[in-house]
Amino acid sequence: MDGEELTEQETALYDRQIRVWGVDAQRRLSKSHILVSGITGTIVEFCKNIVLAGVGSVTLMDDRMVTEEAIWANFLIPPDENMPSGRSLAEVCFDALREFNPMVHVSVEKGIFDGDFYDKFSAVVVGRCSLATKKRINDICRKRPKRIAFYAVDCRDSCGEIFVDLQNYTYAQKKLEETVECQLQYSSFEEAVALPWRALPRKMSKLYFAMRVIEKFEQDEGRNPGETSIADLPSVLKLRKQLCEGQSMNESNIPEGLLERLLVGTKEHPPVCAIIGGILGQEVIKMISGKGDPVKNFFFFDAMDGKGIIEDISKPE
């Protein structure tokens, strides 16, 4: 890194975290730019975490209007905003978010972007969105000249999923006394979900398969993500059968109870938002600072069993 020093103000504010990750990491953070698209409770938690951590900038994208569901797990929006005000979700969140840390530049972008718009970002994080959108944005990140990390996150019922694509990532791994250079090769979301299920480790988190069924169901039915209910269960079970047959996998790997929870519990569970938003924040901070072992490449949490598990679902190198 260059020799630029943190200001006195920064040193005072970030004192406790500099003790965790060092001055150098703090400097890198302050030069990073994060694009966030699709504002959910989990995404709000994530934004709070990285704004407090002191990234350089956060750019919010979400043109949807504020609805009751949108504020469910969102602590940035006061209730009187829950009225048609002509302001988008991103605009309403912007005001509260920037207050968390005056040293972070928070802004809002409208519309859909492509290509070089993304070049200024170190990482792009998408909240709950369609399969097609995930693939599209991940693909853009991969095609830009400079590496842009891609994260996708979704929470349903008391479950959460994080997907990470750091493309080709090198970092210093600490092993007992010595530090070794470690290189990781990530798969894109499209590549990962295309892998045959039979080829995956036997104890793969069931949430992985269940999320793929729901995702496929929403795509086939032309639904917005999360636009589901218990009435969809028969169709989803039919889809499960079809997918499992195609993949030669036993249907018991995707329990009906779990699918039901994901269909019905479309509102996020706030404690799970805090947990998933916290893990996601840590991952982005690790990636920017180059410190710590990053998740490769899925993370799952289910409050029912309390486990937070990393799964590696990558195409063979």
């Binding site: 406790r16 975290q17 003790r19 404690p271 805090a274 947990i275 916290g278 309390g306």
Partner: peptide
């Protein structure tokens, strides 16, 4: 840090711990 026995602290871990507390509290 030594004189004040200062603990290293970041927001993310606090958020995760708080989420876990609420899950247990329920």
């Amino acid at each position: 840090g030594i004189a004040g026995n200062i603990v290293h602290a970041v927001a993310t871990t606090n958020a995760i711990i708080a989420g876990l507390i609420v899950i247990e509290a329920i």
